[in-house]
Nucleic acid binder design. Structure first.
Length: 263
DNA sequence: TCAAATGTTTGATC
DNA sequence: GGATCAAACATTTG
């Protein structure tokens, strides 16, 4: 479900409620989102104090006074503050000042306690909002494949998902099949700037709500109204009027303007 | 009934 | 060894 702007919005709304709170009780029912050991997560969280909530790419870290809670929303995960648990509630944390739920229909997400930061965290690439152009460009040049799937690769940069990859490529006028390593420095600069601008603007609009994304307070985002290509196949390009096309690239639906975007 | 959905991991293949 | 690609995961919705 969520990409960097949605995760950032969730983190901000959750952090405002839970920073400094103590977890008095933890119910964790899903073995899937805890990768097998839901009891470990429930035990580790009980009694812990939440010192901070951070985001790296699409990953969320609740820093505790002992250990950490790692949350990845996957496709359908939600963190909800002070709402009633439902059919898809996978974890319920009772805090000294309210209740935090983890809901996840498809259970592609994760909600897991670790005493020490696990190794897989360091395999994630630099956050899309923090990576420097030099780093971005030098690693871009090593890649021979198409640019779109590379932007979705979280080891390349963290945080860009299917919506914002398509929107950023449109903004930079780059075709999703363009070879990553063949982009000129100038076009790479254009892309880098487009990624940052697109993500920051989406954060200002509190993310994109395509189907059911909501932040911790149940609020929908507004950025979907500003999408130029994502979900607009068959409609007119807002820049040139050509018909927006949808193809499948790297197993993901990919939307682009065949006239504006060059390889 | 089929296709598609804001994502990642795994295993095969180049 | 690395990059790339398809399949798998589970469920809903059109």
């Amino acid at each position: 479900m969520p990409e960097l702007p949605e995760v950032e919005t969730v983190v901000r709304s959750v952090a405002a409620h839970v920073t400094g709170a103590q977890i008095t009780h933890a119910e964790v029912s899903s073995r899937r989102v805890t990768r097998g050991d839901h009891e470990k997560t429930a035990r580790g969280l009980t009694g812990a104090i939440i010192e901070a909530v951070r985001r790296h790419g699409k990953q969320i870290f609740f820093e505790l006074d002992s250990g950490l809670l790692y949350v990845h929303l996957g496709m359908t995960g939600k963190l909800l503050w002070n709402t009633e648990p439902g059919k898809y509630t996978r974890a319920e944390l009772t805090l000294d000042r309210g209740v935090l739920l983890y809901d996840d229909v498809r259970q592609f997400g994760r909600f897991e306690y670790f005493r020490e930061a696990p190794a897989f965290i360091s395999t994630s690439g630099p956050d899309a909002l923090s990576v420097s152009f030099e780093d971005f460009f030098s690693r871009l040049r090593e890649r021979r494949g198409p640019i779109k799937p590379l932007l979705l690769n979280q080891r390349f940069i963290g945080g860009v998902g299917n919506i914002y990859a398509d929107e950023a490529l449109f903004s930079a006028r780059i075709h999703p099949r363009a070879k990553a390593g063949r982009l000129s420095k100038q076009r790479a600069q254009e892309l880098y700037g487009s990624i940052l601008r697109t993500l920051k603007l989406a954060i200002e609009h509190r993310g994109s709500s395509i189907s059911d994304y909501v932040d911790a307070s149940g609020e929908r985002g507004g950025y979907q109204l500003l999408h130029c290509v994502y979900g607009r196949a068959g409609e007119a390009c807002c820049r040139c009027g050509a018909v927006i096309r949808r193809i499948v690239l790297g197993q993901r639906g990919t939307h682009y303007c065949p006239r504006c975007q060059r390889t």
